[in-house]
Write a protein that binds this DNA or RNA. Structure first.
Length: 195
DNA sequence: TAAAGGATTTTCT
DNA sequence: GAAAATCCTTTAC
């Protein structure tokens, strides 16, 4: 079952937790790839300096102000694309960064897209999973979710030991807020959060 | 195994 | 002009 907009119409920290175990599906170029979400990070609108929208709306972060369930894909560090799911009510700029997947379908396609990479590393990292799913393209700025190129399906229940809730230190020494990061035990993008 | 540094371009101040 | 929600390779231990 594909998650509805109402699933995302909540604070990003809650959505991040509930996205664990769900399956992210991407259909591009005739190939269908999917992976189970094992790490996600919520960015709240309430003064988080690491949130792209903390200084208001810009051309880049405009999708964050859109309806819940919108895909927000942006470019950073000169070479990486990152995927977010927009959360909370329309006009409230919150999102969940998808940080790592456990590959489910289309692994051969992922291997072609990421040659010379071990299976464990195919989707272990927010930029890595974007490459494995083939999301990088000139039409990144469009609403991939609404166009049904990209969607997230409901996952199975998680065990108590499956979920790790860890605060992540914000960007810069003056970070005033800890973001909420949730992970499962395998395929996490980093061994442990700082702080 | 861990740490450090380079790659590279968009965005905002 | 500086910083950025990162990744990959090299180097050191």
């Amino acid at each position: 079952m594909i998650l509805s907009a109402s699933f995302y119409a909540r604070p990003a920290d809650r959505v991040a937790r509930d996205l664990l175990g769900c399956v992210l599906v991407c259909r591009r170029g005739g190939a269908r790839c999917s992976g189970r979400i094992v790490e996600a990070e919520g960015y709240l609108s309430d003064g988080d300096p690491a949130c792209h929208a903390c200084r208001g709306r810009t051309e880049r972060n405009a999708p964050m102000f859109g309806p819940p369930g919108t895909a927000y894909v942006y470019f950073t560090y000169g070479m990486h694309w990152l995927l977010n799911a927009v959360c909370n009510a329309e006009g409230v700029a919150e999102a969940v960064l998808i940080r790592a997947l456990e590959p489910v379908d289309g692994i051969e396609t992922m291997r072609r897209r990421r040659p010379n990479v071990s299976d464990v590393d195919l989707c272990r990292g927010p930029a890595r999973l974007v490459r494995a799913l083939g999301i990088e393209s000139p039409d990144n700025r469009r609403d991939l979710t609404a166009r049904r190129v990209l969607w997230i399906e409901q996952g199975g229940p998680l065990g108590d030991d499956d979920v790790i809730a860890a605060p992540r230190v914000g960007v810069g020494d003056d970070a005033r807020r800890l973001r909420f990061c949730v992970r499962r035990s395998r395929y996490v993008s980093r061994p442990a959060p700082r702080g």
